[in-house]
Design a protein around this nucleic acid. Structure first.
Length: 569
RNA sequence: GCACCGAUAGUCUAGUGGUAUGACAUGGGCCUUCCAAGCCCAUGACCCGGGUUCAAAUCCCGGUCGGUGCACCA
């Protein structure tokens, strides 16, 4: 049994992760979070909220998981998220059609399925495996399709990422943040991808949870006001050029990484650091965490820089859990083009610029009656005339091949000084995108410890207190009423102040400690016969197994302080 | 989607053409004292469908799920 098997086995047995729809045989790519799993996930999401929503001030929005077709046409998912696939008729092997003819035709990846099929026939391309004939080329799109309304309905897709919901709300968000950069929006929610072959448990799901921030920044100023606070932090970086040269990741200070151009700018560096702080706060081992830069061949063409936070997993090696990209203005421009909406922000100059303007204003009262139904065309043509085209007070315009000469009665020339206070710019977007399910698996694996205690293996999940699904277990030493009663009183005391507490009186005390170690419960409170004499109980620490004896009075405060680590226990 | 391998209680597992082994876990009870090890009792499984057969959990075929490799992973 490797570590993956052990973690999955524990997760199943203790109610963290279950395969979905098990009684009907299950479905690949879907997982249920069991009681402790759902609780842990909620805790992870809340820590994320604390980092991005509370601390950074990027409010959370919630948009539908179903999106209308236009959104994904604009985002490129309708065309770019599908792959042209062809199958060998003899051996059944499946190939990317564009890859097959890439070496014959350049730019094959941009061609349509029909075009690819034609080229495969033309060049008599055969199955690289067995030489058999190839089937028709068809598009396999990774988006789930659905429809809105009855009958044929309106075509729609389940969103493949939460990001588009925030891009689409840009005008509303801009107004919400009072028309000023920078600002950000976040979203935690489900996304859907119809993976061809989901594998590796919770690492590649068809329905998964993302936490994404879209941070809209000034395209020409990518500094970050708080960068200086984190400039001296050291992180494990794996820059693109180092990867290409086959080198090892390097530990580097962030200000050096920015000034040497390894990280494109302060803003990306700031969120790289924030990402690491978040992951470590969730229980990711910082020694099994690195930041790998996308190589130019894997980075989207529009991205200015892109880093993946990767965690080391026993079975799978380095696995991406977060992507942090400078997506530039790609998404907003794409939506602007298709929707015709103005997705820009007015950026005021420090000092207004003055400019001499010469404008030709048509005289409607003359042109209208004189030219009647040609008037509209003439006015349009006049818009494109520059003052230099005016010769002796007349100007010639071309309307449908006919040259019409207009005299000074047809227009006036206006000269004025225009003040330009600023300009409309399309913001750039920094996008940290978190795969919550992968993070949760990594947390479980990195928190999993086996220790030898008196020749027995003790399994303990050393989860940070903030994400432990159960914070305290209350255990009467023996299953006897005189001990159960005070135990119940402590349970309700703790529950009243919002501490997730369980009562457990089943089996020997040692077994119950082990049971709670396995789900990462930080504290176990034991009621024994001394409790009846002097009103004290013991509190046991999960990691050290050490116990302290404390009075019941004030235990709620004591536990709550310990959980928030105000003073040590 | 293809190929190979696998699927037995909550978990891990033994095994067979005649309904199944064990461990751990779980539930109830006992226990005046703390780290899965005490005592008594109890619950609990052959992935689904079809075929062969007197009889299939076992053999065959198909499917589902899982693992691995290929492909895919904006």
């Amino acid at each position: 049994m490797d570590l993956y098997d052990k973690v999955i086995e524990l997760s199943k047995r203790r109610g963290f992760l279950w395969n979905s729809f098990e009684i009907y045989g299950g479905a690949a790519g879907f997982y249920d979070y069991g009681p402790y799993g759902a609780m842990l996930k909620r805790c992870v999401e809340n820590i994320w909220r604390d980092f991005f929503v509370v601390q950074e001030g990027f409010f959370e929005i919630e948009s539908p998981t179903i999106g209308i077709e236009d959104i994904f046409v604009a985002s490129g998912h309708v065309s770019g998220f599908s792959d042209p696939i062809t199958e060998c008729l003899k051996c059944g092997e499946v190939f990317r059609a564009d890859h097959l003819i890439n070496n014959i035709v350049s730019g094959a990846d941009g061609l349509s399925s029909d075009e690819l099929e034609r080229l495969i026939k033309l060049h008599n391309t055969r199955c690289p495996e067995c030489g058999g004939n190839l089937d028709k080329v068809y598009d396999f799109n990774l988006m789930f399709t659905t429809s809105i309304g009855s009958g044929a309905g309106r075509k729609a897709y389940l969103r493949p990422e939460t990001a588009q919901g925030m891009f689409v709300d840009f005008p509303r968000l801009l107004r919400f943040y009072r028309e000023k950069l920078p600002f950000g929006a976040t979203q935690i929610g489900k996304a859907y991808r119809n993976e061809i072959s989901p594998r590796q448990g919770v690492l590649r799901l068809r329905e998964f949870t993302q936490a994404e921030a879209e941070i809209f920044i000034d395209p020409v100023d990518k500094t970050h006001p708080r960068f200086k606070e984190i400039a001296k932090k050291k992180l494990t970086l794996y820059p693109a050029n180092v990867q290409e040269e086959g080198g090892e990741p390097i530990t580097m200070q962030l200000d050096e990484a920015v000034s040497s151009g390894i990280i494109a700018h302060e803003c990306i560096a700031y969120y790289i650091n924030l990402t690491c702080e978040f992951l470590v706060a969730c229980g990711i081992d910082s020694h099994r965490l690195r930041l790998r830069q996308h190589r130019s061949d894997e980075m989207a063409h529009y991205a200015a820089d892109c880093w993946d936070a990767e965690v080391y997993l026993d079975r799978f090696g380095w696995v991406e859990v977060v992507g942090i990209a400078d997506r530039t203005d790609y998404d907003l421009k794409a939506h602007m083009k298709l929707s015709q909406a103005q997705l820009t922000v007015f950026k005021e100059y420090k000092t207004a610029q003055k400019r001499d303007v010469v404008e030709i204003k048509p005289n409607m009262a003359y042109i209208g009656p004189t030219f009647k139904n040609k008037a509209r065309e003439i006015i349009n043509a006049l818009q494109n005339i520059s003052p230099g085209d005016i010769k002796n007070g007349t100007v010639a315009v071309n309307v449908n091949g006919e040259t019409i000469t207009l005299g000074s009665e047809a227009f006036t020339i206006e000269r004025r000084v225009e003040e330009i206070r600023g300009e409309n710019v399309v913001p750039h977007v920094i996008e940290p995108s978190f795969g919550i399910d992968r993070i949760i698996y990594a947390i479980l694996e990195h928190s999993y410890f086996e220790e030898m205690v008196e020749d027995e293996t003790r399994v303990v999940l050393k989860l940070p207190m903030k994400i432990a699904p159960v914070k305290a277990a209350v255990l009467p030493l023996l299953t006897r009423n005189e001990l159960i009663e005070p135990a119940n009183r402590i349970v309700s005391l703790l529950k009243k102040i919002g501490i997730q507490t369980v009562f457990d009186d089943s089996g020997t005390i040692g077994r119950r400690y082990r049971r709670n170690d396995e789900i990462g419960t930080p504290y176990a409170i034991t009621i024994d016969y001394e409790t009846l004499k002097d009103g004290t109980v013991t509190i046991r620490d999960r990691d050290t197994m050490k116990q302290v004896r404390v009075p019941i009075k004030g235990i709620d405060l004591k536990i709550s302080n310990a959980l928030t680590q105000v003073p040590p226990l």
